[in-house]
Amino acid sequence: MLSLTTGLAPLVLAGLLGWTGAVKAFSKGTARTAPKTALARLLRSSDRATTVLRATGGVELALAASLLAVPATPAPGAATALLGAGFLGYLGYGRLKAPESSCGCSADENVPVTWRSFARAGLVLAGGVAAALADASWWSALGDRPAAGPVFLAVSALVLFALSADLDRWWLLPLRRTRLRVFGHPLLGGAPGEQVPVAATVELLENSLAWQAAAPVVRSALLDHWEEEGWRILLYSGVYGSGGDARPVQVVFALDATAGRDTPGDPMVRVSYVDADTGQALAAEELQTVPRRSALPMAG
């Protein structure tokens, strides 16, 4: 088994490096993805990152060729192991940079580092060592073990395939889609009730004339919400009036808990300003005189 591994490792590695090298060196996508890589950060330039990525692709292609053409010599294997170690170091650098980018608040979200990338780089390192230790050419190893050889190659290819995140759309996503088709959609849940989610009520409110009328008074986002007798009550805080007359108020809206933005007809909203200190209703007349305004009817 060991001699099989060391014997065929160059072939497997040549396949992997030939493919990744060709993609890096010749694909138009390299220039497009380069600015998103941790490499661009390391070098502080996406142009330089593109050059380095293409050069790495060239090195990978050269290594693939030498692994195939000069078997049973330690040099190509050792160089490949070195490349694998370099990949691991680079991934570790990207990983260190990842925590600050995971929040969504700051800029770089595209550090392509998952455990699979580490596993693949680790395999390149291990494969390089195995290839350096090989004492026979890969074709003689294949010839010696006509049954086990192809099986080993197939298994290795499958493992590398599974560890390559960029190939997911060819096998992982179709597999997951099939699972949903066979076992049903996991988020089917019970039939949605009569009531819409709170977010839908807020959305309806924000598209209503009542919101437009109250917007100059409302200062906070949604403070609290609850339901009572089919009404959904939404509570905001705000300031009514200006200058010395300004009063802190609570702005309460009441909406139909079953109505959303797609419910036909105009949204109907009850609204009141309540003085936060005294509990008095304020500006009742001002709100009463907001004219009714209908949305333009849809054609057809």
């Binding site: 209503s208 004339l209 437009q212 309460v252 009850r270």
Partner: peptide
């Protein structure tokens, strides 16, 4: 809220 003004209408604000 329920004794407050009733405002009917949509807005794109």
């Amino acid at each position: 809220a329920l004794s407050g003004a009733t405002i009917v209408g949509a807005s794109a604000l």
